[in-house]
Simulated scan of single mutants.
Amino acid sequence: MLDADFFRRWMTATAASVDREAARLTDLDSPIGDADHGSNLQRGFVAVTAALEKESPDTPGGVLTLAGRQLISTVGGASGPLYGTLLRRTGKALGDAVEVSQEQLADALRAGVDAVMALGGAAPGDKTMIDALVPAVDALGESFEAAKTAAEEGAAATTPLQARKGRASYLGERSIGHQDPGATSASLLIGALVEASGE
């Protein structure tokens, strides 16, 4: 079973991962976005870590709701609302339970991903974070490691796609050949589950 401590470790591991990969995320964002994805997310997750040190929600849902709120209030561009919605909706779906199973997390995360799709209007194949998140959620019932692999493969598979949503979609065919930065950062979020679990 996964408790609030696990979810805090997940957010802390994500923050460390984003910090390590910030330059690469920004490099990926340079040709097809505003060249600020890495620095924006880095700032957001620093705020998440600080908030979790100050406040200590005692439920998994509470941890994710607080994290989502921080991202919405500190991250500019589209990624703040999208990641904030993902975590808040997942947290809301987990409710007030003190512990949740991996299956409950998978179901809640699917609700979070659905909320992101509704907000951004993106579907799998549109070259967005959804391309990493949907396969990850599908694999989550199996293991965190399987979800991580699925997210990384989903992110890599965005390279040959033409963007149909988000800033990159304005480039049309010029967006082909670049890995999507949002899908890449989403794979970091999912990969951090493995670190949090110690698998």
Rank of each mutant, 00 (worst) to 15 (best):
V134C: 10
A163F: 05
V137M: 06
E103T: 13
E103H: 15
G80R: 02
A157C: 11
T74Y: 11
A139M: 09
L87H: 02
A157Q: 11
T158G: 00
A151Y: 03
L133H: 00
A97Q: 13
A108C: 13
Q102G: 13
G120D: 02
G91V: 10
G76H: 05
K148H: 13
L105E: 01
E142I: 12
A118Q: 14
Y83W: 15
L82R: 02
E153W: 04
T128P: 04
L87T: 00
F144T: 10
G125R: 01
P135M: 07
V137W: 04
G154C: 09
T149C: 11
T158Q: 06
A118H: 11
L87G: 07
I130V: 14
E142V: 14
S79P: 06
Q104H: 07
P135Q: 05
E153S: 10
D131V: 05
A118K: 15
P160W: 10
K148F: 12
D114Y: 03
E103G: 14
R164Q: 11
D138R: 14
A123T: 15
A150N: 04
P81L: 08
K148Y: 09
L105R: 01
T159H: 13
A156W: 08
A122S: 13
A155Q: 04
L86M: 00
R110N: 10
K148A: 15
G76Y: 00
V113A: 02
G166T: 00
A151F: 09
T149G: 11
A78N: 06
V98T: 15
A97S: 15
V116Y: 01
A151D: 01
L140E: 06
E99A: 15
L105G: 10
Q104A: 03
E103W: 03
S143Y: 02
K165Y: 02
A155H: 05
P81N: 08
D114L: 06
G91Q: 02
M117H: 08
G95P: 05
G154D: 04
A97G: 09
L109N: 07
L105V: 02
A118T: 13
K92I: 13
E152Y: 11
S143D: 13
T149R: 12
V75M: 11
K92C: 12
G125M: 08
